[in-house]
Amino acid sequence: MENLLWRNSKWGSKLVAMAIACVALVWVAIPFLWAFNNSIKTEADTFRQGAVIPFLQFTPSLDAWKFVLSDPQALNCLFSSALVGVGTTLFVLILGTPAAYSLARFEFKRMKSRDITLWFLSQRVLPPVVVLTPFYILLAELGLIDTWLGLILLYSTFNLAFCVVIMRDIFRDVSKEVEEAARIEGASLWQIFWMIAVPLSLDGLIVTAFIVFAFCWNEALFASAVTSQHAATMPAFILASRSTRGVDFNQAAVNTLVAIAPPVIMSFFVQRYLARGLSFGAVKG
């Protein structure tokens, strides 16, 4: 389809399309290039005006990489990020998927399923900063400041709503007739959920998981507020390293690249699910 469209267009419009694509590419790629370039500079070079092209204008060095990757604090933050990300994702999916399924399939007596869904959605509309202080106090009361569990709970609160709203739409796309067939075959509600609904929504589930994970991995504001040492995640670490030591651009660049890498690598794997998953059911497979 797209190929045909492309082949049949005039060369003029092709040129425009290409130009736009190039600008977009540069726009997206420059920060990465900048970060990579800086990550192989020495600290002195990062402040030198003419040092742009490696080997020609400055001698590349792996010092910053070595420094960051041997810094126990940085490694600890990486581990925290991974743990909190995976933990939150699992927790959110375990709680949110059944909730989404029941909203998709059943009508409740007191409240319409649609209204409940809307309520879930409203949780995402609130600017997160508003709840920063209350959450801080809550976590402090529970003794969960600077713990992985605290962060996982916090992130789960934000992402649960997202997961429920998205997964509900995905579940609504599973053929009712297929589920009824399973019921006739003797499957219980849970069996239908596990053996029919979840496998048939796997694409959407994977994409949802990925988005939740990426949110946790990238979140900086709350992470900085409720963690200090033990449970600090990568974004919090990056923010902190700037404020305490001035700006070590080369190390900041390495940190950035390290922080960006996992979601980017993951997105390559998730890619094949993205097309269907991100349409959230609009396209039938």
Partner: peptide, 11 residues
């Protein structure tokens, strides 16, 4: 046992 109009096989 039921046979559905659209077969309703498990895809």
């Amino acid at each position: 046992a039921m046979v559905f109009q659209n077969y309703a096989l498990f895809p």
